[in-house]
Design a protein around this nucleic acid. Structure first.
Lengths: 145, 145
DNA sequence: GAAGATTGAGAACTCAATCTTC
DNA sequence: GAAGATTGAGTTCTCAATCTTC
């Protein structure tokens, strides 16, 4: 049987813990300010990037790493909050196009300071710059080849 | 307003993505083999470590980084599956003691090869040893001071 | 009143099935 | 039949309230 080395297990544990800690801290801060969860920020940002062209839900799935039904239900909630709009797709009768509304832009912009502040304090202020670049490369290798 | 540097954002994104990828891969493999989710492994391992002394749920909370109600409901399910036993605590009338059963030990042991195999292939085989040690130290710094 | 633990109600997630259009 | 997207049913998560014992 293949057994990982102790360092590997320690690394895995540290990765999961660090990730949870950061996410929980950010989610808690957003909630305390009456803001929607982090997933909304990510979705709004990706949608906003596509401007007036909008984006197809299946393309959002790839960028947000969500399953099809997850995207569908997330978009439901954000639409209900009036932050995005869904319209039928002209080219493809099966699909739709999602665009951000002005309220959506305002919401994303009002979430950013909270998010940015925490990313800076929790990551940037804790890791030396040169170190971060190396770590970034390692993390990227983990999720790809 | 405080704004993180691009490298910080990239690092954060890579951290979240790597974490999701690893977790999803492991959960999928466990499910494919008819095994319970990863959270059960972690809980069973912590409980098994305490041997016949058992462990109090509030102590498990700290180790698993779960909220009180989360621990309560997780233990419910694992108990229902016959993998652990809850008994009233002799010293403290409010509390209980959780111990692993033989079936629980067998289950944890049967989950390990799947888990270990993936940790080795997805982490150990992708990151040079010295790199992993550095990354480990950084991740630990992220979640602490 | 605080600590250990549970619970009801509502939200979110997951799986599998479904529908429509390609 | 495959792709884009939704949905019903069941499970899990979350919040706030609750209960018991300290």
């Amino acid at each position: 049987m293949i057994t990982p080395q102790p360092t590997t297990i320690a690394f895995w544990t540290a990765l999961v813990s660090a990730n949870r800690h950061l996410i929980e801290t950010i989610e808690t801060a957003l909630k305390a300010e009456g803001m929607p969860p982090l997933a909304w920020y990510d979705a709004l940002l990706e949608i906003e990037k596509t401007g007036s062209d909008g984006i197809r839900p299946f393309a959002l799935e790839d960028r947000l790493l969500l399953p099809q039904y997850g995207t569908s239900r997330l978009l439901d909630r954000i639409t209900k909050a009036g932050l995005i709009e869904r319209t039928a797709c002209a080219d493809d009768g099966r699909g739709q196009v999602v665009r951000i509304t002005d309220a959506g832009k305002r919401m994303r912009r009002s979430m950013w300071p909270i998010y940015a502040d925490l990313l800076t304090k929790l990551i940037e202020w804790k890791l030396p710059r040169d170190e971060m670049a190396g770590l970034l490369a390692s993390l990227q290798r983990l999720r790809n080849g």
